[in-house]
Design a protein around this nucleic acid. Structure first.
Lengths: 247, 247
DNA sequence: CGGCATGTTGAATCTAATCAATCCACGTGG
DNA sequence: CCACGTGGATTGATTAGATTCAACATGCCG
């Protein structure tokens, strides 16, 4: 953990929020002056654990993370994947006990922002409060989409849907272009995210590869037929609620 | 739709918020003076639809509702059930387009509160804003729990878990006692909520009945063995985040 | 080089879905 | 009052999809 010179790590957050809203110069300045500590995590390392009562939230600067819950008999459910610009535990600002864990999927750099500072920020700038609130609501909207997938979509559709979602999210932060991106997710992780067994994930991936739809290999994803991929899972990006709106 | 004399329908909301927080007298008064219209819906009637851009949120006064998404080929996923005291579409305050629908499961009375008034309220009382934000975060926490159920729990466990959740929620608003409550949910609804087929729901219910665990019949639920029911699904109520905290 | 994590494949098994009847309670209209 | 229609619940038979178990391949790292 290193106390940051605060180069401009928080610009990442500004950039992210401006995807869904317009910020004033004051608001940008206030965000930039948030106290922040940088921390680097190894692959597999937990950032926050189920049951913790964190006093800070983390912004991902680079790397990958996922949230997950553990059940008895070694069962695990991955709830979401997170990429640079995300604040995966923003909810802990108002919900004090973690009901799941957050872990790095590869070497990952995060910026830790104290809840006190965030609370002060939202008190001074109600507009920012609304935007952050909105971020957590979008998070919930994505949960709803995943839920409907797990309940009512086939394994094939679920996988296709996840690839569409991840590609668009990566593209939005400049980490994907021309239907190609890094995806440091193992087949076991995919299985735990989609509610499948690792063996079945392997077979569905094989099928998609053979159909020249998508190829996932060596930690990188190539989408060979974007339109068909979207059609296969009835993908509608509306659930991510990216319509911009002057708060 | 009738313009309400505003007897005290909003006390329901106060009561609900005081489950997770402590309100000042001013805050209570401000809530009570919210403009509100009462509306009565028939069973099966939609309250808000996927794609709508509502300008108000609804508080359930009595009855039952559920949120759901429709997919191609007639598939439906129920995302949540709602009982008196819930504000199932509070998120529409900051997310402007509905990504799912909300429908009454039986004759249901709701109070409609304009977004403008809510925004004004949260601007004047940042403490209330935090509490409402928190409500939406708890909503998301429940989604996470359902997700892990659909991904990693068996049909039997999922069903048991849902019954535990609903019973405790009903109990909290005085609609259940001595392990018995009204549950106007058909087996088809249960199936769409749990990601199962109606036939399988029927079989699991039969199994539970034969084990003297729970009986669901004629719209009412009786839990014969609460402890065992909780054990069967590893139920831990923590995910509903009811710890009270002076905001 | 050995060890370990990850990915791949086959075979057997099982859970839950699907298809198809039937039943029952209830309300409606003749 | 009874015939009828309807929505929900129930049951059986069959099948599809996914899991489990097991073996083996591959690649990376110390």
């Amino acid at each position: 953990m290193s106390s940051a010179p605060n180069d401009h790590s928080l610009d990442m957050l500004i950039c992210r929020l401006e995807i869904i809203a317009t910020l004033s110069e004051e608001e940008r300045a206030a965000i930039r002056s948030l106290p922040a500590k940088t921390r680097i995590l190894n692959a597999g390392q937990d950032i926050v654990c189920d049951g913790d009562k964190p006093s800070q939230s983390c912004l991902i600067l680079n790397g990958w993370a996922c949230r997950y819950k553990l059940l008895g008999a070694g069962r695990r459910q991955i709830l979401s994947f997170h990429i640079p610009g995300d604040i995966p535990d923003l909810h802990s600002l108002h919900i004090h006990t973690m009901d799941h864990s957050l872990a790095a999927l590869k070497e990952t750099t995060v910026v830790l922002i104290p809840h006190d500072s965030l609370r002060e920020l939202t008190a001074r700038f109600p507009g920012l409060a609304a935007i952050l609130w909105r971020e957590t609501l979008i998070d919930a909207a994505v949960f709803r989409e995943w839920m409907t997938g797990m309940g009512r979509r086939t394994a094939y559709e679920r996988m296709a849907h996840l690839f569409c979602e991840l590609y668009l999210r990566l593209q939005a932060v400049g980490l994907a272009q021309s239907y190609h991106c890094v995806l440091p997710i193992t087949q076991v992780d995919l299985a735990d995210a989609l509610g499948l067994s690792n063996v079945h994930v392997n077979r569905v991936l094989k099928e998609m590869r053979e159909q020249n739809l998508v190829t996932l290999r060596g930690g990188s994803l190539t989408i060979e037929a974007w339109d068909e991929l979207m059609r296969a899972c009835e993908f509608d990006p509306a659930y991510r609620h990216l319509e911009k709106r002057a708060s």
